[in-house]
């Protein structure tokens, strides 16, 4: 018990440190003291002397970007936790299930049809429908009812993801306008982070997190086996349905705010499970914190080079090999 609390404190401390480190870093260097002074001015109406540039860079450029990165990291990790539990599959996450690609397709469609001008929610909404569509196809192809084999699910996820990626490419090709920014957004980027997206992300993440925390016992039991979960008294169909809808919604919100960022939802729950075990109540807390931390660090690195590497590319480059490693072990063990 003690050990787990220490990890929690360490994780929170690291997150706070990374937050301030990342805020200060960039073309305009801002010291920790100045950062605190600016926040003080904002929150308590004090009148510390700060330069306008510092304030502008901090509040309008860095803070939204950093918060987005943390929220998206936390969200994707939570999606991973939920998908892995309800699909009884340690390899599942938004990315490997193809849900992210489906969401990206939906969001691209909304961009290209200019639905963004009608309502800011339309992109998220389209992303959600895209993600639901891809998930339904994947679960159908994998034979959700009869056999929950890891390989089936992952292969159908990859196939569906490929189809949607091609569909996105086709949309971009057919669209008469400039699609460079769509391509860049798709590769995963926090460049266009804004407060509107942050609010939606925060709201949805809170709802989904509350679900995962409150129904953690049910998630634990469902992650064993459908039959025994039912005989232990869990309403498997209901909980699983709600869980899939919520995780898909969260995926869609992430993708519409920052494109496709792969593997974070797969890796984080694995690391946490390795350290503190597979209980979903703990997983839901630690994964959210670790996900926020890792993606914040990754994003800070991605913007500290003289040229910016899309964050999705970076997580793919680091996460891909990690996925291969897990896949190799799991396949040996379970199939």
């Amino acid at each position: 018990m003690k050990r787990k609390e220490v990890y929690l404190i360490v994780l929170v401390a690291l997150l706070v440190m990374a937050f301030f480190w990342s805020l200060g870093l960039g073309d305009v260097h801002i010291s920790a003291k100045k950062i605190i002074e600016i926040f003080e001015n904002q929150m308590f109406n004090t009148h510390n002397k700060v330069s306008f540039t510092d304030k502008y860079v901090l509040l309008n450029l860095r803070l939204p970007r950093i918060l987005s990165a943390m929220l998206v990291g936390a969200s994707l990790s939570l999606c991973g936790v939920i998908f892995q539990a309800v699909l009884l599959n340690p390899l599942a996450d938004s990315y490997t299930l193809g849900a992210a690609s489906g969401a990206a397709f939906g969001a691209t469609l909304a961009f290209i049809l200019n639905l963004f001008y009608i309502s800011a929610f339309s992109v998220s909404l389209f992303a959600f429908f895209g993600a639901v569509l891809s998930l339904v196809i994947v679960l159908y192809v994998a034979g959700f009812k009869s056999n929950l084999s890891s390989i089936n699910l992952i292969i159908s996820g990859i196939i569906v993801a490929t189809i949607f990626s091609s569909a996105i490419a086709l949309l971009d090709y057919l669209a008469s306008k400039d699609v460079a920014y769509i391509m860049f957004w798709l590769m995963g980027s926090f460049d266009s982070s804004n407060w509107h997206n942050i609010r939606i992300l925060f709201l949805v993440l809170t709802i989904v997190w509350f679900f995962a925390f409150f129904w953690a016992d049910e998630l634990d039991i469902i992650s064993l086996n459908e039959l025994s979960a039912q005989s232990l008294g869990v309403n498997v169909v209901k909980i699983r349905f709600i869980a899939l809808i919520l995780a898909t919604l969260l995926t869609a919100v992430c993708v519409s705010s920052s494109g496709i960022i792969g593997f974070i939802g797969l890796i984080v729950p694995h690391i946490v499970r390795f350290i503190i075990g597979p209980k979903n109540r703990l997983l839901s807390i630690y994964s959210v914190l670790l996900g926020a931390l890792l993606l914040l660090i990754a994003d800070t690195f991605s913007r500290s080079f003289s040229f910016q590497i899309p964050i999705g590319v970076l997580t793919g480059l680091i996460g891909g090999p990690f996925f291969l490693y897990i896949y190799k072990i799991k396949v040996k063990k379970f199939v």
Binding site: L88, N89, P90, D220, S223, L224, N225, L227, S228, S231, L232, G233, R273, G277, P278, K279, F334
Partner: peptide, 17 residues
């Protein structure tokens, strides 16, 4: 029902509880 009947079936567990 789960308070009245329990079932031990053939099952595989994927997570290291």
């Amino acid at each position: 029902l789960a308070k009245k009947i329990s079932l031990v079936s053939q099952e595989r567990i994927f997570f290291d509880y």
